[in-house]
Design a protein around this nucleic acid. Structure first.
Lengths: 109, 109
DNA sequence: GTCCCATGTCAACGGTGGATGACAGATCTG
DNA sequence: CAGATCTGTCATCCACCGTTGACATGGGAC
């Protein structure tokens, strides 16, 4: 079960903040991310990025001396959402994405 | 937002196992849950149940000397799902990309 | 080549969270 | 009432995680 690492990665507020930055910017270099995260230093951001990458929640693209990160919603993130929907299926009628998630499983190209 | 506690509660495998038991049984006493969780003792299960309850992921019903627990999908669980959908919407639909992640973030007191 | 920049990695420290056994409170039974 | 049951709480120990500064790596500029 690979979603264990994903849940663990999602548990840290700094890592969720990083995911928020990536969700807003689509793609970001490590330095650009670290500039927006003021609560911790660059080293911590780098470590968190590694955790997110190993967990399969973000993907990395190397270009010269830069490394660009972006959200990876096709891997363990899907397992996490599926698992949560299975557990909390009861009262989720009004949550955006609860039903459309099955549709989202198909690649939008 | 107090989805922080929910994410933290979801990070532990034992707690997710408890949620799985509750999702399958609908309602369960603390002792019945502890019987199905073999990895840790009864004390640990009780502590985990408290974490889940404080996080708002399960609700408690007291009946005599028993305490029955059940999934609560109407509270922070919804916030968690919403937040995850906002983050991992990239690559799925990616329509209104200007959804402010800060709205879902916790506010410093 | 040399120097600088972007980034990852290492060792160390401090804090936090989880597991356990012993104890306490509440409740039912006789 | 006494005794048994169900459960939560407390104190303790131990392990893991996060943060940091210093160092290493690798790619561009000159």
């Amino acid at each position: 079960m690979d979603s264990n690492m994903a849940f663990d990665a999602l548990a840290d507020p700094v890592r969720r903040e990083i995911l928020g930055v990536l969700a807003a910017e689509d793609e970001c270099s490590a330095g650009a991310i670290a500039e927006r995260i003021t609560s911790v230093g660059r080293t911590a951001v780098s470590t968190h990025l590694k955790v997110l990458r190993v967990a399969g929640l973000v993907s990395e693209r190397r270009d010269g001396r830069f490394r660009y990160y972006s959200i990876d919603s096709s891997g363990p993130a899907r397992d996490v959402l599926t698992l949560l929907h299975q557990v909390f299926r009861a009262g989720l009628q009004s949550v955006d994405g609860a039903v459309p998630y099955e549709q989202a499983q198909e690649r939008p190209a």
